[in-house]
Design a protein around this nucleic acid. Structure first.
Lengths: 216, 216
DNA sequence: ACCTGAACACCGTTCAAGT
DNA sequence: ACCTGAACACCGTTCAAGT
């Protein structure tokens, strides 16, 4: 992932001593806090620095500018999420296709819903800049994990797995974001989640290869 | 829609004279231009005003602050989009369900893809504030239009139409946004669009009510 | 190696003065 | 009714000076 990070978003310097590491961690934590309490619009560098207990100058030693802060925050978050999805996928290799879809949707959904305000804050913090590189790297990792899982399904094969896989991920990622954006009430959100699984299953069933009927 | 707009986002004053209307239009147009050429991050009020050929002060007579500009822009855009979708839906009343889904996905997708950079700029401009009210109003309108359409399907009925409808819209809106966010190459985007229709059809087929088999 | 905070440039917003 | 633009407060970013 690091290799895909545009240079202007890279931290200026990596923490080398213990206190520096503590500083960077404090800045991350402070950023989330300010994001949650004040919103992205009222998040100022001074405020974050104050909350982290350091001076602005210190912050700028590690992050070349404000957006780099958001970038690093999202990078951390997406790394985590990709890893979670990967684990889920590996554990389902060889399983029936329905189990896979259910596990995938549930894992992704739950990960996003665990701390909804953080998720929302992050969605909003990715305003600008080359977050595309970030999202691309994330998508690539998840893509690989789910494609490998689906390829191993015990009860289904697909003529064009890459397209099927891309469609599924696009739909799942998108739906979750949509639900957050509309801030749907919990019961409606839960209903959509159940239906989404149904939908993915119906789709996979429609596009999967069926064994030829015995010749005669 | 106007009734749901939060007060602090309302234009300060409505243009009453012809030259004022021209001013407001120029400001809108300038905002889009600056958004496209400089990006949301480098969009300053002075720059927009300059491009529109007015002074900053004038801008502030109509928009209480910068965000209100973005808000108004999105409002215009979503009004338009909702109307387009509504027309599509009305024209399909009584049609078979497959035609409906196909028309819905195609209309929405094409509307968003017609001017991709504008779409992207708008997605990014809705950073903050109560865009929720805006999106909610939009969703409500589209919701009503599609629900009425699906209820009139010549070849299908649904036990829980509201949930089915909500799921479909969440998926369609979300997928389109996902495709934009990842900036998928045209051929992959096209493939996803086709698959999305397939997916919706498979889903509707799975959840639709079938006539009871004749008793015996 | 790491931290500080005053200083600078710039941007959002206002308001007294104009037509 | 509509427009102007200098003025003000504030925020992002820097850098000389410190430990």
């Amino acid at each position: 992932m690091a290799s895909t990070t545009p240079a202007h978003l890279t931290p200026r310097k990596r923490p080398r001593q213990a206190r520096a590491t503590a500083t960077v961690d404090a800045i991350f934590e402070a950023t989330i806090q300010v994001l949650l309490t004040d919103g992205p619009h009222r998040l100022t560098t001074t405020r974050v620095a104050a909350r982290a207990g350091v001076s602005v100058g210190t912050m700028y030693q590690y992050f070349p500018h404000k957006q780099a802060l958001f970038y690093a925050l999202n990078e951390r978050y997406l790394d985590d999420l990709a890893e979670t999805v990967r684990n889920t996928c590996e554990a389902r290799h060889g399983a029936p296709i329905v189990d896979m879809v259910q596990a995938l949707v549930t894992t992704y959904w739950d990960a996003k819903t665990k701390r909804p305000e953080v998720t929302r804050a992050l969605y909003r913090s990715v305003v600008e800049l080359d977050n595309e590189a970030l999202l691309e790297a994330f998508a690539r990792r998840v893509d690989a994990a789910t494609a490998a899982m689906f390829a191993s399904a015990s009860d289904a094969g697909f003529a064009d797995l890459p397209v099927v896989n891309l469609t599924l991920l696009t739909t799942i990622f998108g739906s979750v974001r949509s639900v957050f954006e509309r801030n749907l009430p919990a019961d409606e959100a839960a209903a959509v989640r159940r239906q989404l699984i149904l939908m993915c299953v119906a789709y996979l069933d429609a596009v999967r290869l069926r064994p030829d009927p015995p010749a005669g």
